[in-house]
Write a protein that binds this DNA or RNA. Structure first.
Length: 287
DNA sequence: CACGACCTGGGTATATATGT
DNA sequence: ACATATATACCCAGGTCGTG
């Protein structure tokens, strides 16, 4: 429930500081990968059914499918640096670096505690990322990519040790199978998408494609499409002055009824109320 | 993994209510 | 008045399950 910095297209990543609200907001989810680093204060970090305590120095790993939200302690609000990046950044360098993000949510530990040497090193790298993004000295985008890669190698070593290689290759195989469909949906969610579209991309029958999709992604095709559209609607509501109807249509909905229905179910508020709240919280104008 | 059959949820169209 | 939000009914497509 906030407006992220736009991801620098050339660098493929962004990092920004943020203080979560002191009560649990609705879960959210995004197509970018995310690494959160608790800088100060304390609070909670919710991932689906899992809840972690957050203390300064803790590092949190978030993939592109798991629902999550951070929450501040009422008396000692937490402050985070969040790194967002496109999976493509890692794919270009070394596909292995994606593996830590291909976890199975129920068995995965999203937090690397501050006591772990890995989080201390990652903390320093995230600080360097913030510095690079602030200064924007010549070549900063390359430097930021380089720092991100270093962070991801540390994550790979950290998680790689504990996991059987069979799990990792299995996770990677599943990701390979579903990735083209996810990428297609991310590009085309504003259009009239059907399972048939991703079925042909995956070279499977409708029913098989739907089955594989739900098994891998953890939600069905329709639901995933709905989340993409609602995420876009939230962005448009906060970052533009388009009318709610325009937001609805530009998000890929063909009419307003399903838009209102889905928005209230997923976000917990009506679109207009969400826009007003975003304004009150000062997140309408990032940075 | 393909196919077919069935059931349900969600999209469409339309009308209506609320709010500025 | 106009935009925003909700309500109702119809119907199709996605999900599911059994079969092979």
């Amino acid at each position: 429930m906030r407006a992220w910095n736009a991801i620098d297209q050339e660098a493929g990543l962004s990092v920004d500081e943020w203080t979560p609200l002191p009560y649990p907001e609705p879960f959210h989810w995004h197509t970018e990968l995310e690494i959160g680093c608790c800088l100060s204060g304390k609070g909670l970090f919710h991932f689906g059914d899992k809840t972690y305590e957050a203390r300064p120095g803790d590092v949190f790993v978030v993939n592109n499918l798991e629902r999550h939200i951070a929450q501040s302690d009422e008396h000692d609000p937490s402050r985070y640096a969040f790194v967002f990046f496109d999976p493509a950044v890692l794919l270009k360098e070394n596909r292995e670096l994606l593996l830590p993000f291909l976890y199975h949510p129920p068995r995965f530990t999203n937090r690397i505690p501050a006591s772990d040497a890995t989080s201390a090193r990652i903390g320093r790298l995230v600080a360097a990322l913030l510095e690079e993004q602030r200064e924007r000295s010549p070549g900063y985008q390359t430097m930021m990519r380089s720092l991100l890669l270093e962070i991801c190698v540390l994550l790979f070593r950290h998680y790689g040790d504990g996991l059987p290689t069979a799990d990792l290759t299995g996770a990677y195989a599943r990701y390979e199978r579903i990735q083209p469909a996810l990428a297609y949906m991310k590009r085309h969610f504003r259009e009239d998408l059907q399972v048939a579209n991703i079925a042909s991309i995956m070279r499977l029958s409708h029913s098989r494609a739907a089955h594989v999709f739900a098994e891998t992604v953890g939600e069905g095709f329709k639901e995933h499409l709905l989340h993409l559209r609602i995420n876009e609607a939230k962005r448009l509501l906060v970052q533009t002055r388009l009318s709610v109807i325009e937001v609805c249509l530009q998000s890929g909905f063909q009419s307003v009824t399903p838009f209102y229905r889905a928005f209230r179910r997923i976000v917990g508020l009506a679109p207009q109320a969400y826009r007003e709240m975003a304004g009150v919280l000062g997140i309408a104008h990032p940075q």
